[in-house]
Design a protein around this nucleic acid. Structure first.
Lengths: 195, 195
DNA sequence: ACCGTAACACTAACCGTTAGGGTTTAAAAA
DNA sequence: TTTTTAAACCCTAACGGTTAGTGTTACGGT
């Protein structure tokens, strides 16, 4: 699996990128709704069926770069220092993600997403999937004694923090505010510390 | 507005009901995906355009009875006894809602929903809307000093409780467990009580 | 050199949804 | 009552995302 990728895989990746680039360009130029799948395919000079073999849906074209969101979250859990507490690590990661989406040169993209109900809905159900894998990561954390339900709950709360902070007037402050609430929730879910 | 509804409105309501009934019958018989909009319209003996003048989408046909979900939540907040605490009232309501969906004769419906990604996605974005109006209701509660962000956060958490409990092995116990966490989160969001 | 198959193309369709335009009929205005 | 308005309905046709069916090309392993 670590062999240098052959010409075939490179071509495939190039095609995928070509499609994603064409899509993003057209979407930003004319607006998401005003661009059809057939337009994107034509711009990228591929067949419609090819486009759909690379992307599962029109919405997926927009969230192409966002696959690492899930990884970053789970790694914030699994890849942290031995005795580093869980929630501050997650808070730090959410901070970074919020900053990445609001300050970056990717601002017009998020503007477009916020303007389209389809895209917002798609994003939300992405987040739900992310919450599930985050819950799994949390549940697998060594030395935990929380129930499965508690882990899934906290995972959802963390995803909520991201979603709510993005819409807040001061996103960074909102992350901190919500995480204070999450920490409290996490505390009472720990059967280890009795009052 | 309290006048007896005229013939016109009665006919309209009857048509709507006829469509909803036909849809549910076909969906349960053949499965949601296997039934097309044109099938439903034919079964209800109306035109496709008529169907869409009563229901915004195919998914909406399934959640027809579920419009009061939103109202029940906001009323649990706005319509409770003067000094009754907020969260126990919400917990009680969520308990009722969870019971209603899992025990009832509506079990096959929820089975169908859980089996269809489209329907799950639709439900989730419904819940988001519900969370928003719940947040508004909470923010409008007299004697509150929480921030807008805190109110929206708690509203989301409550909706999460519903969603997570429905998927848990013991839904009722899950509601209680999650609400313990929500209560803790709500506590730290209150600037009124200093440690 | 050869074969299996992954990547891509083309056509044609399916399905949810909407626009356009027309008919009936309940209800409000005259 | 008569007239007028408009809501509810119907039909046809289409649009746009998505998929099935069927080939064709060319890379990669043998």
């Amino acid at each position: 699996m670590t062999v240098p990728p052959g010409r075939r895989e490179r071509k495939k990746a190039a095609t995928r990128q070509k499609i994603a680039d064409a899509a993003l360009r057209l979407f930003l130029e004319r607006g998401y709704d005003a661009v059809g799948i057939r337009d994107v395919a034509a711009e990228a000079d591929v067949a419609v069926t090819t486009l759909f073999s690379h992307f599962a849906s029109k919405e997926a074209l927009v969230f192409e770069q966002d696959q690492d969101f899930e990884q970053r979250l789970t790694r914030a859990v699994t890849g942290r220092a031995p005795h580093e507490p869980l929630l501050p690590a997650l808070r730090h990661e959410i901070h970074a993600l919020v900053r990445h989406c609001s300050a970056d040169g990717s601002a017009p993209i998020w503007q477009m997403i916020d303007a389209s109900p389809d895209l917002r809905e798609y994003e939300e159900s992405m987040r739900l999937r992310h919450a599930e894998s985050l819950a799994t990561a949390i549940a697998a954390d060594p030395g935990r004694s929380q129930t499965t339900t508690a882990c899934r709950t906290i995972a959802r709360f963390v995803i909520d923090a991201y979603a709510l902070a993005r819409e807040a007037a001061d996103p960074e402050a909102a992350v901190d505010e919500i995480f204070r609430m999450i920490e409290a929730a996490w505390e009472v879910a720990s059967p280890s510390r009795r009052t």
